[in-house]
Design a binder for these strands. Structure first.
Lengths: 343, 343
DNA sequence: GGCAACTTCGCGAATGTTAGACATAGTGTT
DNA sequence: AACACTATGTCTAACATTCGCGAAGTTGCC
């Protein structure tokens, strides 16, 4: 396999000139450049990037840690990360951790051993104490929450979820079920906060029995919705903490011979592509997946370059999307304790 | 940052012993190993893998080329690839090409420049002539078709699709619509072949007007199904070349005030997770995504090790999954030219 | 013509690791 | 005491590239 020396020999220049031609073309005369390019063409030379990276002590690659690539929202974000990274000359090392701490550590070791320059973490930070002190390398939380320490990008989950519940209340709903993620998950915590804020502002008492725990997966939405449907006084609306659970919930509700939204309104979160095409199409929150990915790469590269950020936290806007899975509460008059003011 | 020399100094052994401890532990006494490990712990030494890879002329990474990571079937396969690769000590470089030839070439260059050891290609091979002669490095087609050259893994798309259409015919359907992928796509070609085989065996003439072209994306399923529903003599069943188009088709059919499967049966292909939860749940073909991924990694690693394969083509089994989106053809008696024999 | 400033390029060092050749010391076996 | 074996050290080479330094050449200006 041809190397830089052979190219230099054929082009009749020094090894350094070949190197400069490829890495700093502005420092080489046109004549030399031409000779070098011809020699490269002739022997089909491809620079050995392993050597280049070794010499420059940079891997030009990023690790993306994701709990599950099969989650369509994560897939969208990663698609955007990959695109922006490639544009900037970086590769993406995919780390699907399946929520395993050990697997995550394996990928972090890639940075410690110089095989990657930084990490974009898509899993939210569960416990504040554990990791961050040891993360003395470029490390960025995407899909972060209010409690995330260090550099992060996020949407305002509290406000977004409050937005949804406000809307359900404006439709006359008073008994609003909630399908959460796992209890300790920061997204669960933030969105639950939004739910409670909306209820509290409307003067609706919080009712523990209307809360069902899920795991952000379709089947867990099915189970949780089944529980809620069997309540003696079942809710007239169910807000789900993501679209997948909402899709599962819709199926479960239908299996009880109830109509969506006629008997129970349902909402999601994320706006995955299936939300638009399920029956009925889902009212949900859209997060700016593309922007999140590209901004994350830009910020991480600045960290890699050694810049210090003016502000660690970047909060991006979300969209509230009303589709057909929500409607006015038919049983509104039975909850007559509060006057409703639709807008 | 600490290097191997410093560890050797602190442990009071030679550099060679440290290297041996980490790379060939069986050649080092327990006592030395202990000293070395303690020194490593003390200075938080992490071997510089850039140097190791450079020295061994191996990147220990694989490129996975995928047309679109947001396709849930591809996401499943990649999840499996990543898992198996990590188990074998390899990293996965994600290359989402969005069907761009240029982006694909960029990733192939990673192998030419030694930053990756091999490629797993999830896009099927469109034109036989273009690439393969230049692929003189470990290169493996996953999701391949009958016409794929070189090492490949696939299911029998022809037989699988014939299986679906056979089933529809056994339910009494005679006018069976087809929503394809793009015309030149090898998956389209293979599955169309299966469709035609099934019709031909049943003595049903092929009707060009029942074929609608899609792009394997939800919205294209919507458009194609709209076209088929507006036909003067519309089909009683629609076979779709993947689940996403089937999900779109179901929505479109419902928007024409038709029932699925009452008026039109619908089938998919891939068995993505939403197929089980859409309304009605989808009759479809399940491909062994996990096996495909792990087998692909195993084979590619053998190619990287320089082995020659006994057989280049690996055909894996598929499952035919009957759910609720298909039913007996109500209009069967109007197609009375052929006696039906359900099984 | 002389000098400064700039451009272009070659030389040699340096990067961290591993492998191989070989020597040495220690241990246990015959 | 001779031998085999293991564990370890020493030393050198190798990997392909980049970078700092300085030499050589070119241009511009007075």
């Amino acid at each position: 396999m041809s190397n830089i020396r052979e190219v230099a020999r054929i082009a009749g220049v020094s090894v350094a000139t070949v190197s400069r031609t490829l890495s700093h073309p502005d420092k080489v005369s046109e004549a030399s450049k031409k000779k070098v390019m011809e020699a490269i063409e002739q022997v089909k030379y491809r620079p050995n990037m392993l050597a280049r990276n070794f010499r420059s002590a940079r891997a030009y690659s990023l690790v993306v840690l994701v709990p599950d690539i099969a989650n369509p929202f994560f897939a969208l974000v990663i698609r955007s990360i990959e695109q922006q990274a490639q544009k900037k000359g970086y590769s993406v090392l995919l780390g699907d951790t399946q929520d395993s701490h050990a697997r995550e550590q394996d990928y972090i070791r890639l940075v410690e051993t110089r095989l990657a320059d930084g990490v974009i973490q898509l899993r939210p930070q569960w416990d504040q104490t554990s990791d961050q002190q040891s993360m003395n390398f470029p490390y960025l939380h995407l899909c972060a929450t209010e409690s995330t320490p260090g550099p992060c990008i996020r949407v305002d989950n509290v406000a977004a979820f409050k937005n949804i519940v406000d809307y359900l209340i404006s439709l006359g709903h008073r008994r609003i079920g909630l399908i959460t993620g796992l209890k300790g998950n920061p997204h669960t915590i933030d969105r639950l906060k939004g739910y409670k804020q909306a209820l509290s502002e409307a003067g609706i008492p919080f009712d523990e029995t209307l809360i069902a725990e899920g795991e952000f997966l379709i089947w867990s939405g099915v189970n949780a919705a089944n529980t809620l449907c069997k309540l003696p006084n079942r809710p007239t609306a169910i807000a789900c903490m993501n679209d997948e659970m909402a899709i599962g919930a819709i199926q479960a509700i239908k299996s009880h011979d109830l109509k969506v939204p006629g008997d129970i309104s349902v909402t999601g979160f994320d706006d995955i592509s299936y939300s638009r095409y399920c029956d009925p199409p889902l009212t949900t929150i859209s997060q700016p997946a593309d922007d999140m990915g590209s901004i994350a790469v830009d910020i991480l590269l600045r960290l890699i370059e050694g810049e210090t950020l003016d502000e660690e936290e970047h909060v991006l806007p979300y969209d509230f999307i009303v589709r057909k899975s929500t409607s006015v509460c038919k049983a509104a008059d039975t909850n007559s304790d509060i006057s409703q003011e639709p807008n």
